[in-house]
Design a protein around this nucleic acid. Structure first.
Length: 498
RNA sequence: GGCCCUAUCGUCUAGUCUGGUCUAGGACACCAGGUUUUCAUCCUGGUAACCCGGGUUCGAAUCCCGGUGGGGCUACCA
């Protein structure tokens, strides 16, 4: 064994990937990479009731997509290691550190009821235990006879004497003390033969050589159990780092009821992985400088455990939006276009046509270059990718449907507006170069030479093209629509004004 | 209820260890102004916080004590 740092990500395949879980994976990955260590994956699938088929692969895909590469050659599944846990549990029994427990559920409930009425902590602890006093051979006999049992770890001696505190050191929170006398003899092997989380988790951490256990703060109170287990085996303790929780707006633990918590939901809406990483990493960690934008590589470079906060962080979508906008604007146009395509398809604006795409309404072929221009026009306005269809929809639809009054700029009149559009149309009919740059120069020159009002000309022009009160500049739209469509749209507007 | 964790703008946070330059800094959001044919972008400015009470000290966001608030755990879930 070297002192190489080993961290691990250990999700349970019970459905989607929670963002809090993702952050844990991120931190574990960053810490391992920063220290030239290893980042391993283990699937904690010991709960058969909550197991969901395929959830494991989904999690693996997502983590890989974000660029957090695992170093295992083979992924560890707890469900395939049942014999290992059994072996270790039997070792503890033979050493009198664990015992078979035959207490029925009804009995356990009764104990708990008594304890609560007496204002004592509930659980199978200290003097409330009974199976720990059973004769070992008798117990084995019962097991042989097929009686249902669980295996429990002895937290304190049978005579209920105990030292006052269990003390351990957390990398983030510092010294943490727990009163031992109320600690229950927790179950390590369930009656279905599967290990509990508390047992398998820690056996595997040991066998995988995990040096730094990073996990959510909700595990602080069960850490003393894990420590007892390590001690029972005489194994060297890993370091513990309990991460602050991710919170809802009301400061409760981030939950599904108050918004999306699944990483895949954010991906689906068109949040970029760079934005998600950047946002999530800053929820509980910060570089102590004023830098806000980080690539994964920069994070690896700058990450350290002592910059992790102690208190929970509210998951504030506004800030995620800001990061996402930032990365969208920075992105290469070709890449952004490729990413937007599925959303245009989804919205039914375009459809596949062999190798190409066509406008779903008109059936016209649309080139990739054309789509690129559309995306460019939307870029400044996108918060997330799935916003695109609403922003550019008007470029794909044939008919213009809008209130003619909208065409009239401020105090202008319908008549003047119609006149202006006529002037503009005649002028544009003579313009060859319909690039937005040229259009802007030519049209503005034209307006000036004729002594016309900028708003009087440009406002109706834009409305004629977009039909929208708020839209991109008319020059940009005109370039995308092309000369014929532009002239047609102006004609339509003139008719509407009559 | 019990055990444990935690506390700086609405939110993410810097500053706390090593008290003074903190009339508390940055970012998001919000508000106002400017640029602009509209929206968006962009630029400028602004509102906004040391949980409370004692103590130590010449001096406390920073140290000590006591409260209070918030959260987590309390399963044969993880």
């Amino acid at each position: 064994m070297t002192n190489k740092i080993i961290t691990r990500f250990a999700p349970s395949p019970t459905g989607y990937m929670h963002v809090g879980n993702f952050r844990t994976a991120l931190y574990s990955f960053l810490f391992a990479r920063k220290n030239n260590g290893q980042f391993l994956l283990r699937i904690e699938d010991t709960d058969r009731a909550r197991f969901i088929e395929g959830a494991d692969n989904k999690i693996i895909d997502i983590v890989n997509y974000f660029g957090l590469k695992f170093d295992n050659k083979e992924i560890i599944f707890q469900s395939k290691r049942l014999d290992v846990y059994k072996k270790y549990a039997e070792q503890l029994i033979s050493e009198d550190k664990a015992y078979y427990c035959f207490c029925s559920e009804e009995k356990l409930v009764k104990i708990k009821e008594e304890q609560t009425t007496n204002k004592l902590p509930p659980g199978y602890w200290g003097p409330h235990r009974s199976c720990n006093k059973l004769n070992k051979n008798e117990a084995k006999e019962k097991v042989k006879n097929g009686e249902k049992y669980v295996i429990r770890l002895k937290m304190i001696p049978d005579d209920n004497t105990t030292e006052e505190n269990g003390v351990w050191n957390d990398l983030i929170h510092g010294e943490i003390k727990t009163e031992m006398k109320f600690q229950e003899d927790f179950v390590i092997i369930k009656s279905d033969g599967f290990p509990t989380y508390n047992f398998a988790h820690m056996i595997d951490d040991h066998e995988m050589g995990v040096t730094h256990v990073m996990r959510g703060e909700e595990f602080i109170s069960s850490t003393i159990k894990h420590i007892r287990l390590y001690e029972a085996f005489g194994w060297q303790l890993p370091q513990f780092a309990h991460l602050p929780l991710l919170l809802n707006a009301d400061k409760s633990k981030l939950s599904k009821r108050q918004g999306d918590v699944a990483v895949e939901d954010y991906l689906k809406k068109g949040y970029l992985k760079e934005a998600i990483i950047n946002f999530v990493v800053l929820l509980g960690w910060n570089p102590k400088t004023e830098q806000e934008i980080f690539s994964l590589a920069e994070l690896v470079e700058q990450f350290s455990l002592d910059k992790i906060n102690k208190s929970g962080a509210v998951f504030n979508i506004e800030k995620l939006n800001w990061f996402n906008q930032y990365y969208i604007r920075k992105m290469d146009l070709a890449d952004l276009t490729a990413k937007c395509l599925p959303y245009l398809l989804d919205a039914g604006l375009i459809e596949k046509d062999g190798e190409d795409y066509k406008n779903k309404e008109t059936g016209e072929t649309v080139s990739n270059d054309w789509i690129k221009k559309v995306v460019l026009l939307a870029r400044e306005r996108l918060v997330k990718l799935d916003d695109i269809s609403e922003i550019v929809k008007f470029l794909f639809t044939e008919k213009s449907e809008y209130d003619p009054e909208l065409l009239v700029w401020k105090k202008s009149s319908k008549e003047d507006t119609a006149k202006n559009l006529e002037l503009l149309k005649n002028f544009l009919a003579g313009v060859e170069d319909f690039s937005k740059e040229n259009l802007e120069v030519e049209i503005k020159k034209f307006i000036e030479e004729k002594g016309l009002g900028v708003g009087d000309m440009l406002w109706p022009f834009r409305i004629a093209l977009s039909g929208l009160k708020n839209s991109p500049p008319p020059f940009d739209i005109a370039e995308i629509l092309g000369k014929n469509r532009v002239l047609e749209k102006i004609d339509e507007a003139k008719i509407l004004l009559k």
